[in-house]
Design a protein around this nucleic acid. Structure first.
Length: 575
RNA sequence: AGCGAGGUAGCUCAAUUGGCAGAGCAGGUGCCUUUGGAGCACAAGGUUAAAGGUUCGAGUCCUUUCCUCGCUGCCA
């Protein structure tokens, strides 16, 4: 059992079969083929991890190839962002950065070849007519009147298309397959169309551009790809993928389809993500609430955690929605191992330790990461006036609230035991300050007499506190599946409280000089990352994910009407 | 309706290819600590969509039924 269960799946089965039968001579060569028309998101991460890790596992290679066959939608900005994101995720394509547009000349020659052998023709039907002639899901299509043109005429017309002799929509090159097939992709699919846009890489060299179906398989073939892995919606395209390669009589990779990743509480379609950006629901593609890799990077998610998550989700052919909890579990798992601990107070409550000398400052030794001894320790200042978390005090504590309350003793982490003696309120009755006394014998947090306390609080010395800004993120949508309601637009479920800004929060001074991208655990609260908006004057922190919160669970349960504790009896009829 | 794919625990996936249906997460219960918002342990969770068939034996093979999803761009 050296291999974990999640690392084997139906695709490794297929690869093993190929290895056994000798197809591809035991080679494994995959590719990740993004279209540069948007930013990569967590769904792409699954595909990236799959393709690269499969190659690595079998000692093969994985290419990065841009599917840039539609200049009307594609931009250099996206090419740059995508390469950065794949690299950030932790994968290396070596020298093998390719573009479908690298193959435009070869693709053109292949099209000419299909015309020569009578398997392609130039169609001058209008787009509307082509749709009409295509038939429907239940009715067969009809042959285009241009279908039987002689080879020479097709050759001349296709050359005319290339030379700019047709405007967009006036002519297309079509494969001659079968207008009666149940699979609509086989009803004489368009191979080339006339497009009027400048291409980010080939400029205005071409007036005609190949369709995805006519470019993808041959690109795979040219690169010697063995396993061309794509998502389920391409299942219907596999017969066409195979037809082009077979008819062209060129090297023939195997297309394999798997179920794309869906995540709860978000949307993962490019169209919808573009709307979120365009309509201002988020601040941009890298807004920390976005499921994009750029957003997750800014949110402080470690790439290793995303890789672990993709591995844990597994790969299958069943569509489903993975709970956001699962992603967060892996984020915490990784951050727990790697993030340094630090004390920060988000909602400050002033505490005066009345018996502590006015001008005294002590430096307390604090552990940076209990999970990693090599992270070392630091000194953090303690003095007479400190801030604690407002939530850590209750005047009338309910059962199971173990933190500070009138007359109660708790520990200040790495410092002293304190006992609350007085609650000071303003005219409105709001608590503005606590008076406590400390026990000098408990320095460091342990009582020599062995007496115990039930809670340990984090704190920050008021005189040394570093004010900062915290951005607390919650799910972008209130619904598990914002797309499930066919009546309401998904934007109706945008969470109005997905971003809460706290300013100021107070940090222990060791955080001064923290750099963007650095990740910390604010003890007892959550993991945070330094945002790029930080300046020398003020640090800005994004909350990546909270710690697991059993207290909140208890509260939620207490708030809910009490459910029957009885176990369900399956034998009892409920209808 | 046509073509294609799929239905195993709340969720995501396993089940050595026909041999006692398992794991992670979530949820539950408990333990413990200088994070009582870290950590750990335990238990629970199933008529494998349904029916029939083959077989000593079926999640797996066969038949039928039901349900879900994708496909009618000159998008990818």
């Amino acid at each position: 059992m050296s291999e974990s269960d999640t690392s084997r799946h139906f695709i490794t089965d297929i690869i093993d079969e190929h290895a056994a039968s000798g197809r591809f001579d035991g080679r494994v060569h995959t590719r990740f083929p993004p279209e540069p028309n948007g930013y990569l998101h967590i769904g792409h991460a699954k595909s990236i991890c799959l393709n690269f890790s499969l190659a690595e596992r079998y000692g093969g290679l994985c290419n990065l190839r841009f599917d840039d066959t539609n200049p009307a939608k594609e931009e250099q900005e996206y090419i740059d962002a995508i390469t950065e994101d794949v690299r950030w995720l932790g994968f290396d394509w070596g020298e093998r950065l390719y573009f479908a547009s690298d193959y435009f000349d070869q693709l053109y020659d292949m099209a000419v070849e299909l015309i020569r052998i009578g398997r392609a023709y130039v169609d001058e039907l209008s787009p509307e007519q082509i749709r009409e002639y295509r038939g429907s899901l239940t009715e067969p299509g009809r042959d285009s009147p241009y279908r039987q043109r002689p080879v020479e005429e097709n050759l001349a017309l296709f050359e005319k298309m290339r030379a700019g002799g047709f405007k967009p929509g006036e002519a297309v090159l079509r494969a001659k397959i079968d207008m009666a097939q149940g699979n609509i992709n086989m009803r004489d699919p368009v191979m080339y169309r006339v497009l009027d846009a400048a291409h980010p890489r080939t400029g205005d060299k071409w007036k005609i551009y190949p369709m995805y179906d006519f470019a993808h398989g041959q690109s795979d073939s040219i690169e010697g790809i063995t396993h061309s892995i794509c998502t389920l919606e391409y299942e219907d395209h596999r017969p066409l993928y195979d037809w082009y390669l077979h008819t062209l009589e060129i090297y023939h990779p195997q297309q394999i389809e798997f179920a794309r990743l869906n995540l709860s509480h978000t949307v993962l379609s490019k169209r919808k993500l573009i709307r979120l950006v365009a309509e201002g629901a988020v601040a941009g593609w890298d807004d920390p609430r976005m499921p994009t890799l750029a957003g997750m990077r800014r949110r402080g998610y470690p790439p290793a955690a995303i890789r672990e998550f993709c591995e844990a989700v597994g790969v299958g052919k069943v569509k489903g929605v993975v709970a956001l909890h699962k992603l967060e579990y892996h984020i915490r798992q990784e951050l727990n191992r790697t993030a340094n601990r630090v004390m920060a107070v988000l909602n400050p409550l002033k505490v005066v330790i009345s018996n502590y000398p006015e001008d005294q400052v002590e430096y307390m030794e604090a552990v940076n990461n209990p999970e990693d001894a090599s992270a070392g320790t630091r000194q953090t200042p303690f003095s007479r006036v400190i801030y604690i978390e407002r939530d850590d005090f209750m005047e009338a504590p309910p059962r199971k609230f173990f933190r500070l309350a009138p007359g109660r003793e708790v520990r200040l982490r790495y410092a002293y035991f304190i006992t609350c003696e007085e609650v000071i309120k303003d005219e409105d009755g709001e608590i503005v300050e606590l008076r406590c006394r400390y026990d000098p014998a408990t320095r460091g947090g342990a009582a020599p007499d062995g007496r115990r306390v039930k809670a340990t609080l984090h704190w920050v010395s008021a005189a040394h506190a570093l004010p900062a800004e915290a951005r607390l993120y919650d799910t972008l949508f209130t619904e598990e599946n914002p797309e499930s309601d066919s009546d309401a637009d998904f934007t109706a479920f945008i969470n109005p409280d997905s971003l809460r800004v706290l300013d100021p929060i107070y940090l222990e001074p060791s955080l001064s000089g923290a750099q963007p991208g650095e990740r910390y655990q604010f003890e007892r609260l959550a993991y945070f990352v330094v945002d790029a908006d930080s300046s020398a004057e003020k640090l800005v922190f994004n909350r990546s994910v909270t710690l697991r919160d059993q207290w909140r669970k208890l509260q939620k349960r207490a708030a809910k009407p009490r459910k029957s504790r009885k176990k369900r009896r399956p034998s009892v009829k409920e209808s």
